[in-house]
C-alpha cells in the first residue's frame, strides 16, 4: 500500500490526506484505520462490497460524519477544526447517489445559490458562472426548469454543476450513476471524464470499472472498513494482489 502514498508534510501538492482514520457507529467500527493521500489533479476510484464503509469515508472527508480517531486534512484544513468546517466544505464538492437537488428551486437557482449566499458573489456574476457550468454539463437549455421535470441523468449533471459552482479543490462522488437508468449512465460519466481531463481532483465511489480503468490514477479496494489494495488501473485489473479483490472483480464483471 505504502508505495502509492505520499507524505503530506513533504508534498505541498496533496489536496486530501487521511491519517489512520477511525469511525464507529455505536459499537460497530465502520472505518478501521484508513490512510490515504490524494495529490492535486488525481482521480481516485474507490470500490468494495456493500457496507464496507465507502460512503462513510467520503462523508468523513467533508465532515458530514465526525471521526473518532486519526485526522483528515483537506487543502490544509483539518476536519477536526469545527470552526473551519464550513470553509472546508466550500472547498469540497459532493455529488450524491440520489442527486439531492433542491426541488423548490430552478436548475439555475440550484447552481447559483451557493455562490451567491456563501461565496458572496454578485448575482450577475453567479448567474453567468452557473450558465457556463450548465453549458459545460450540456444542460443549459433546462436552466429555468424545476429539477423534478428532468431525467435522472440530467439531474445528476445539474448536481455536478452545483458542486463545481463553488470552485472546489476537490470533488467527491458517491455512486453517482447507480440510481440511473443504463442509458443515462454514459452522459454522467462523460461529464466526469471531462472534469478529470481538466485536472479536477476527484474521489469517486463507483463500480463502473470501465470508467475506473480509463480515468483513475489510483483504484482503491476497500473491505470491512479498511483499504486492502491501492493500485494503478493497469495493475489493479491485470494483477490484483488480494484474493478478495479478485473475487470482487469477478463478481462485478460477471453481473
Amino acid at each position: 500500500m505504502s508505495d502509492s502514498l505520499v507524505d503530506p508534510s513533504v508534498d505541498r501538492n496533496v489536496v486530501v490526506s487521511l491519517e489512520d482514520v477511525r469511525k464507529s457507529f455505536g459499537s460497530l467500527e465502520v472505518i478501521r484505520g484508513i490512510s490515504l493521500s490524494i495529490r492535486n489533479g488525481s482521480v481516485v476510484v474507490i470500490c468494495g462490497p456493500s457496507g464496507c464503509g465507502k460512503s462513510t469515508m467520503l462523508r468523513c472527508i467533508n465532515g458530514l460524519e465526525s471521526i473518532d480517531a486519526g485526522d483528515i486534512v483537506v487543502d490544509g484544513i483539518s476536519v477536526k477544526d469545527k470552526r473551519k468546517l464550513r470553509l472546508l466544505r466550500t472547498e469540497t464538492g459532493m455529488v450524491f447517489q440520489q442527486f439531492n437537488l433542491f426541488p423548490h428551486k430552478t436548475v439555475l437557482e440550484n447552481v447559483s445559490m451557493a455562490p451567491i449566499d456563501i461565496r458572496r458573489m454578485s448575482r450577475i456574476e453567479a448567474l453567468q458562472l452557473s450558465r457556463e457550468l450548465l453549458d459545460r454539463v450540456g444542460i443549459l437549455d433546462k436552466e429555468n426548469e424545476m429539477p423534478s421535470s428532468l431525467s435522472g441523468g440530467q439531474q445528476q449533471r445539474v448536481a455536478i454543476a452545483r458542486g463545481l459552482a463553488m470552485n472546489p479543490k476537490l470533488m467527491m462522488f458517491d455512486e453517482p450513476t447507480s440510481a440511473l437508468d443504463p442509458e443515462m449512465i454514459k452522459e454522467v460519466l462523460d461529464v466526469m471524464r471531462n472534469l478529470a481531463e481538466d485536472g479536477m481532483t476527484m474521489i469517486v465511489v463507483s463500480h463502473e470499472m470501465g470508467f475506473a480503468r480509463e480515468v483513475a490514477d489510483l483504484i482503491v479496494m476497500m473491505d470491512e472498513g479498511q483499504i486492502i489494495e491501492g493500485q494503478s488501473p493497469e495493475k489493479f485489473f491485470e494483477h490484483p494482489r488480494e484474493e478478495r479483490t479478485k473475487k470482487f472483480l469477478s463478481q462485478i464483471i460477471s453481473h
Binding site: L64, F96, L101, F102, D117
Partner: peptide, 20 residues
C-alpha cells in the same frame, strides 16, 4: 439529503433551515 447537500455547499444549519 437536503440538509446534507446544503451542508456540503457550506451552508450553516440555520441558513439551511431557512433557505432549503
Amino acid at each position: 439529503g437536503q440538509w446534507e447537500a446544503a451542508y456540503s455547499l457550506g451552508y450553516s444549519p440555520a441558513r439551511t433551515f431557512v433557505k432549503i
